[in-house]
Amino acid sequence: MWVLDRIDRVSDIAYAYGMGRPPLNMKPTLVRFSSNVIDRIDALVGQKHRAKFIREAVDAELERREKELDRDDYPNRDSDQK
């Protein structure tokens, strides 16, 4: 059918020019939270925004800890981990 041939050509053109969803540059990871934590997150931001909230919270905590390390001139990070 000419319609299917045309669709194939259009999709080929779109692919060749880099159209479509851009890469997210993210890796999936499995993290387990208690039901209570999930309920608290959902109460604040809603279930649809849970992943974004967790990403932002992790980024904020990483920045906080990195600043703390800068302030302490990079102490032995493994000393308090067991």
Results as ranks from 00 to 15, higher is better:
4 L>E: 13
82 K>A: 10
11 S>C: 06
67 K>P: 02
27 K>R: 15
14 A>Y: 07
32 R>I: 00
59 D>E: 11
5 D>M: 14
17 Y>I: 12
54 I>D: 02
25 N>H: 05
37 V>R: 11
10 V>Q: 13
7 I>H: 05
20 G>T: 10
37 V>E: 10
41 I>W: 07
6 R>D: 07
69 L>R: 15
56 E>Y: 06
58 V>W: 02
4 L>A: 07
13 I>M: 06
81 Q>I: 14
82 K>R: 14
14 A>C: 10
65 R>H: 11
22 P>S: 15
56 E>S: 11
10 V>R: 06
21 R>Q: 03
37 V>M: 05
65 R>Q: 14
71 R>F: 08
17 Y>H: 14
11 S>K: 14
13 I>S: 08
30 L>I: 09
54 I>L: 10
8 D>E: 14
28 P>H: 06
29 T>I: 10
1 M>L: 05
41 I>P: 04
13 I>F: 10
42 D>R: 03
7 I>G: 00
55 R>D: 00
58 V>R: 03
58 V>Q: 07
77 R>S: 04
40 R>Q: 09
27 K>M: 09
14 A>L: 15
79 S>I: 11
9 R>A: 13
74 Y>F: 13
40 R>A: 08
13 I>R: 11
47 Q>I: 03
9 R>M: 02
63 E>L: 12
70 D>E: 13
35 S>V: 03
62 L>M: 12
13 I>P: 00
14 A>E: 15
67 K>R: 12
43 A>C: 06
18 G>V: 02
82 K>H: 13
34 S>W: 04
2 W>V: 08
80 D>G: 07
70 D>G: 03
7 I>F: 07
55 R>A: 04
80 D>E: 12
54 I>V: 15
49 H>S: 13
25 N>C: 01
72 D>I: 01
23 P>D: 08
8 D>L: 12
38 I>T: 04
32 R>P: 00
72 D>W: 05
58 V>G: 05
23 P>L: 05
9 R>L: 07
64 R>P: 07
1 M>S: 14
40 R>F: 00
3 V>L: 13
59 D>C: 06
67 K>I: 02
72 D>N: 14
24 L>Q: 12
13 I>Y: 12
52 K>I: 10
75 P>C: 03
26 M>E: 10
51 A>G: 09
6 R>C: 05
1 M>P: 12
16 A>E: 11
79 S>H: 03
35 S>D: 08
50 R>F: 02
62 L>R: 13
27 K>Q: 09
43 A>N: 10
41 I>S: 02
19 M>A: 08
17 Y>R: 15
39 D>W: 01
26 M>F: 01
22 P>C: 00
6 R>H: 09
15 Y>F: 02
81 Q>V: 14
68 E>L: 11
46 G>K: 06
46 G>L: 10
34 S>K: 07
53 F>G: 05
